[in-house]
């Protein structure tokens, strides 16, 4: 069974990091959510780092583009909306 793809968030959706514990190594992060762990890519790690205080997705997208540059194809804002949606679905972020 494949898991359903989480819905992307809107650009004005406000999110905050809620994981219980994390270990960072080489720009990536392993976070503990309940009894499960989630391994985050470098971009997701940066996103979660910027969301320690509530922030809207478009602000987070701007910060990530500054940090990593725009993705080679597609809209960077749409990509961050999708990523934030996945992180909310995994319980790493919470939508306010």
């Amino acid at each position: 069974m494949t898991e359903p793809t989480p819905a992307p968030l809107a650009e004005d959706a406000v999110v905050v990091a809620v994981h219980e514990d994390a270990v960072e190594r080489d720009g990536e992060m392993l976070v503990l959510v309940g009894s499960e762990v989630v391994l985050l890519s470098a971009v997701a790690t940066a996103l979660v780092g910027h969301a320690h205080e509530p922030a809207d997705v478009s602000t987070l997208a701007t910060l990530l583009v500054e940090e990593f540059g725009a993705p080679p194809s597609g809209d960077p804002f749409a990509a961050v909306c999708t990523l934030a949606g996945e992180l909310v679905a995994r319980g790493v972020l919470e939508q306010r």
């Binding site: 270990v23 190594r25 080489d26 990536e28 992060m29 392993l30 503990l32 762990v37 391994l39």
Partner: peptide, 10 residues
């Protein structure tokens, strides 16, 4: 790699 292994070990 540390985090990948740590995820499995968890």
């Amino acid at each position: 790699p540390h985090l990948r292994g740590l995820a499995e070990l968890t």
